[in-house]
C-alpha cells in the first residue's frame, strides 16, 4: 500500500506541494488529468517520511498520507 495517495480529480496542478516538500521528491506527472493539468506525483516513495507537509499545504485537500506502523 502506498504512503502517498493523490486524488487526481481534485489536483489543480498548482505545484505548492512540490515547492514545499522538504525532500524534493514530488514533481509534476507527465500525463494530463480530466481538468487538463499535470498532477503532482511522487518520484521516490521509499524516501517519503510521511511528514504530511504536502498534504497540509494542498489547497484542494487532494493528498492523503499513510505511515508504516512499527
Amino acid at each position: 500500500m502506498s504512503k502517498w495517495v493523490i486524488n487526481e480529480n481534485l489536483c489543480k496542478g498548482c505545484g505548492i506541494c512540490i515547492s514545499r516538500c522538504p525532500l524534493k521528491i514530488l514533481a509534476f506527472a507527465d500525463h494530463l488529468t480530466a481538468k487538463g493539468v499535470h498532477p503532482a506525483a511522487i518520484t521516490d516513495e521509499a524516501k517519503c517520511t510521511s511528514c504530511a507537509i504536502c498534504a497540509r499545504s494542498c489547497p484542494d485537500v487532494a493528498i492523503e498520507i499513510f505511515k508504516e506502523e512499527k
Binding site: L10, K12, C14, R56, C58, P59, D60
Partner: peptide, 13 residues
C-alpha cells in the same frame, strides 16, 4: 465537493 477556487488559492487551506 471539489473547491471551485483557482489553483493555489489559500481559501482551500
Amino acid at each position: 465537493k471539489p473547491f471551485h477556487y483557482c489553483p493555489g488559492c489559500d481559501h482551500g487551506v
